[in-house]
Design a protein around this nucleic acid. Structure first.
Lengths: 223, 223
DNA sequence: TCAAAAGTGTTTTAGCTACACCCATGA
DNA sequence: TCATGGGTGTAGCTAAAACACTTTTGA
């Protein structure tokens, strides 16, 4: 039977400087020299897919040994997506707090709006990025994944800012507070407080062990 | 870079005889002779992944040219999942009305509970099947996909039976009726009626063009 | 003392649950 | 006429939206 190359591409998202941002790799060699692409690489023969994703997260993205949510996104495999040869790519979605990534100049956090707006992308990486962003937006509704964008300890307002930036819509602080603090096992209070956001001191929380958020937090949709 | 074989396995589900059933393939050759497996096969070098899934749906499952919902499920690729060689498998999930499948004796609709209960499965196909079933169960909550299990024209009660069988929980017929007929573009009345379920004649509907169901129909969860 | 943000209380409204009730058919 | 399932009305509850209000800090 035919054998093909299998690669893994990473859509690594974070919230920084008021923008949903993705980790991009600037290509200096053909094909697509000068375009941005997603960090990725080929899998090894004796390597599981999640292991390959973790390895590339360290090697290519510079995010080794960091607590990052990683999940399989989708697999892309139409025949001419790579001009050199047939490559089937298993994309992974990573959600990270705002961390310094690789020290290489080639690897940069960039606002998603900027990436999809104008810059030319290599291969089908614009589509993969958009699929990853849509998956992240959807999962904030019915899971507790928003906390994956926050540091280990965070306030309710910081969590709310994640929702607002990822969805691009303002949320009522009062109702949001009630919703997330009332949800079972979403947030665990540490007892400590902080005034880093200004104003009255806010409770600090860490992530609870809930994965689902029921009932979900529905975003407003365009009618 | 290393090249590996890429296959597609199909989780094709339907509702028949009061059971959620899957299309299974009984293996008569090693490896795993005598076990059930999912219908599948290797992709061709010039073939897109959805095209491979459609082709195998026709060749292996006997469901050619039928209106079947097909979506990518997940990709499975740990190194020793096939004892012969490294195979990365892109699984697809198909939701079909109760149709006669392949005429081959090797291919059978079988109740999911029966399959996962006791019969030994080939490769990691039990896991793939369970992932497909869970995806289907989850998607009934927030999409209009339940209609993919129904014939072209169906009644509200038939749609409700799909939910009840897939979820394994009874639903209130009155509230269900209000919910689905009130949802925007989920159902389109044909004007015709039927008495095939007994009792008072029921409206026949066809699928509307809505994909999302908002607000979702939440199933009761174990606390 | 004031601005700013955290957090609580309250009113209104939407949607779900539970169940009483009527309707239209076949047997 | 009666059993069967289709379909409607309605009361009660839960949760969300909208917004007034109090609390606690830094400047």
């Amino acid at each position: 039977m035919p054998r093909v190359a299998v690669s893994t591409d990473l859509v690594v998202l974070t919230v920084r400087e008021q923008c949903l941002s993705a980790l991009m790799w600037r290509r200096d060699l053909p094909p697509y020299a000068g375009c941005w692409s997603l960090p990725g690489g080929f899998i090894q023969l004796d390597e599981d897919l999640p292991a390959a994703a973790s390895r590339l997260m360290a090697e290519r993205a510079g995010l080794a040994d960091v607590r990052i949510h990683l999940e399989q996104l989708q697999t892309y495999g139409y025949p001419d997506r790579d001009p050199r040869q047939r490559v089937v790519s298993v994309a992974y979605l990573g959600l990270a707090p705002d961390l310094p990534a690789s020290t290489r100049a080639q690897v940069l956090w960039t606002a998603v709006d900027e990436l999809v707006g104008s810059d030319p992308a290599a291969f089908d990486h614009r589509r993969i990025l958009l699929d990853g962003v849509e998956r992240a937006r959807a999962k904030l509704e019915y899971t507790s994944l928003a906390a994956a964008f926050c540091p280990a300890e965070f306030t309710v307002a910081e969590l709310r800012r994640v929702y607002e930036i990822v969805w691009g819509t303002p949320l009522d602080p009062r109702n949001f507070h009630r919703k997330v603090t009332g949800a079972d096992r979403f947030l665990v209070p540490t007892g400590r407080t902080t005034t880093r956001d200004g104003g009255r001191p806010a409770q600090l929380y860490i992530r609870g062990d809930a994965e689902q958020l029921r009932p979900p937090m529905l975003r407003q949709r365009p009618c």
